Simulated assay, not measured.
Amino acid sequence: MNTSSVWVAIVAFGCGSYALRVGGVLLRARVTLSRAVEKSLERSIVVLLLAVAVTSTMFDGHELSGTARVLGVAVGGLLAWFKAPLVVVVLVAAGTTALLRLAGVV
């Protein structure tokens, strides 16, 4: 993939994202969604974010990431589950990954 195609993809993604946001604001007063549809949309957002998080955790480019990253993210996820502040979650997850890598866990 060359540089120009990456820039085209970035611009297209940005324009699409902006169009979705503007469309939501403009159409919210005109379109009424049922409670079931709204609940499905909320769940789909969570699923999409979870899929991105898992993919980013498990893969580094085209290869599997190391055990240290997976364990660091797991520790961060556990802290987030118990509603720790975001700064604490990020710092402890990064620290866990760093310490594991320092100890030789790849």
Score class of each variant (00 low, 15 high):
residue 3 T to S: 13
residue 5 S to Y: 05
residue 6 V to F: 03
residue 6 V to P: 00
residue 7 W to S: 08
residue 7 W to I: 13
residue 7 W to F: 13
residue 8 V to G: 01
residue 9 A to Q: 11
residue 9 A to G: 06
residue 9 A to P: 00
residue 10 I to Q: 10
residue 13 F to S: 14
residue 13 F to V: 14
residue 13 F to G: 04
residue 15 C to K: 09
residue 16 G to H: 04
residue 17 S to T: 13
residue 19 A to Q: 03
residue 19 A to E: 06
residue 19 A to V: 12
residue 20 L to W: 09
residue 21 R to L: 12
residue 22 V to T: 07
residue 22 V to W: 12
residue 22 V to M: 12
residue 23 G to A: 15
residue 24 G to A: 11
residue 25 V to K: 15
residue 26 L to D: 09
residue 27 L to T: 14
residue 27 L to W: 10
residue 27 L to I: 10
residue 27 L to H: 06
residue 29 A to N: 14
residue 30 R to A: 06
residue 31 V to G: 01
residue 33 L to V: 08
residue 33 L to K: 11
residue 34 S to M: 07
residue 34 S to I: 10
residue 36 A to I: 14
residue 36 A to D: 08
residue 37 V to G: 01
residue 37 V to D: 09
residue 39 K to C: 02
residue 39 K to Y: 07
residue 42 E to P: 00
residue 44 S to M: 15
residue 44 S to T: 13
residue 45 I to E: 05
residue 45 I to G: 05
residue 46 V to W: 13
residue 49 L to H: 03
residue 50 L to H: 03
residue 51 A to I: 09
residue 52 V to K: 09
residue 52 V to M: 08
residue 54 V to E: 07
residue 56 S to G: 11
residue 58 M to I: 15
residue 59 F to H: 04
residue 59 F to Q: 04
residue 59 F to E: 04
residue 59 F to W: 15
residue 60 D to Q: 10
residue 60 D to V: 04
residue 60 D to C: 10
residue 61 G to Q: 04
residue 62 H to C: 01
residue 62 H to K: 15
residue 63 E to Q: 07
residue 64 L to D: 01
residue 65 S to C: 03
residue 66 G to N: 03
residue 66 G to P: 00
residue 67 T to M: 12
residue 68 A to Q: 04
residue 68 A to L: 05
residue 69 R to A: 10
residue 70 V to T: 09
residue 70 V to I: 15
residue 70 V to G: 02
residue 71 L to D: 00
residue 71 L to V: 15
residue 71 L to R: 03
residue 72 G to M: 02
residue 73 V to L: 08
residue 74 A to V: 12
residue 75 V to M: 07
residue 75 V to G: 00
residue 76 G to M: 05
residue 76 G to Q: 03
residue 77 G to I: 03
residue 77 G to Y: 04
residue 77 G to P: 03
residue 78 L to Q: 06
residue 79 L to E: 01
residue 81 W to S: 08
residue 81 W to H: 13
residue 82 F to T: 12
residue 83 K to D: 08
residue 83 K to M: 05
residue 84 A to K: 12
residue 85 P to L: 08
residue 86 L to S: 13
residue 88 V to Y: 10
residue 88 V to L: 15
residue 88 V to G: 06
residue 89 V to K: 01
residue 90 V to T: 12
residue 91 L to D: 00
residue 93 A to W: 01
residue 93 A to H: 01
residue 93 A to K: 00
residue 94 A to Q: 05
residue 95 G to M: 12
residue 95 G to W: 09
residue 99 L to C: 09
residue 99 L to T: 11
residue 100 L to N: 01
residue 102 L to N: 01
residue 102 L to T: 10
residue 104 G to L: 12
residue 105 V to G: 06
residue 105 V to E: 03
residue 106 V to C: 02
